[in-house]
Lab assay of single mutants.
Amino acid sequence: MTEYKLVVVGAGGVGKSALTIQLIQNHFVDEYDPTIEDSYRKQVVIDGETCLLDILDTAGQEEYSAMRDQYMRTGEGFLCVFAINNTKSFEDIHHYREQIKRVKDSEDVPMVLVGNKCDLPSRTVDTKQAQDLARSYGIPFIETSAKTRQGVDDAFYTLVREIRKHKEKMSKDGKKKKKKSKTKCVIM
């Protein structure tokens, strides 16, 4: 069974824990209790493949930012979460993405942009803004509501699919490099 290491990042209060708990335990946590770091595991079937999701729910508070490099190193894919009623959390996505790329030393890291709290009427981040940002990053965008469960499975499952595509691409690139290195030079 394939294991996928997913990391949920975003500013404090955007609903990272609520999304994760909704996926794992099928219930909505409405009281806000700032996370330092929590880890969850769940076995699911995605596109006919049974897999184990190892999900790291991270601290959004700035005082825990020193811990970010460590979990970013171990993560295979990242859910970059903002709240649709919090423009600052949307603007912060850029910083999370840049930090992930720096730590992973790669421009090509599996990510999904997630606009959470889409059940709320007080939207300050337009869907088109988020779609445009995701398009500019070359990553999928999904709106979710941890409260109603809308888009929750889709967000995590899409990230797994992005990781699969990335692994497939990397193995193809690896095979191309191996083929090239088999060419021999004969000096007579």
Rank of each mutant, 00 (worst) to 15 (best):
G10Y: 02
E62T: 08
S136N: 07
R68A: 13
V7Y: 08
D153G: 06
K167D: 03
V160M: 11
D57A: 00
T87N: 06
K177E: 08
I84M: 14
F82I: 10
K177A: 10
T2W: 07
K16T: 02
Q129V: 07
K184M: 03
G60M: 01
I139G: 10
I24H: 08
R68D: 15
Q25T: 15
R41Y: 02
V152Y: 13
Y71V: 10
E31D: 10
K180N: 10
Q129L: 06
R164S: 05
I142R: 13
T183V: 09
N86H: 04
C51W: 10
N116H: 14
A18V: 05
I21R: 01
I21P: 00
D105Y: 06
T2H: 09
M72Y: 09
R73A: 14
I139C: 09
K42E: 06
E63H: 08
E49T: 07
A146S: 08
T183A: 08
V7Q: 05
K165R: 07
K117L: 15
T158K: 09
V9R: 08
S136L: 10
V7H: 15
F141M: 04
L133M: 07
V186D: 15
T20C: 04
D108F: 06
L133Y: 10
T2R: 13
V44Q: 12
D153R: 06
V7K: 05
E49G: 08
V186F: 13
T158D: 03
S106E: 11
V44K: 10
V112I: 07
V152K: 15
K172G: 04
D38L: 00
G60F: 01
I142T: 07
E143C: 04
C80D: 03
I24P: 00
K172D: 07
A155H: 15
V81Y: 14
V81K: 01
V114I: 09
D69C: 03
D47N: 10
S136V: 09
L113P: 01
H27F: 15
P34N: 01
R164G: 10
K169F: 14
K165I: 09
K42M: 08
E162N: 13
Y137E: 07
G115F: 13
S122T: 10
E76F: 08
H95G: 12
D105G: 12
S17L: 01
P110E: 01
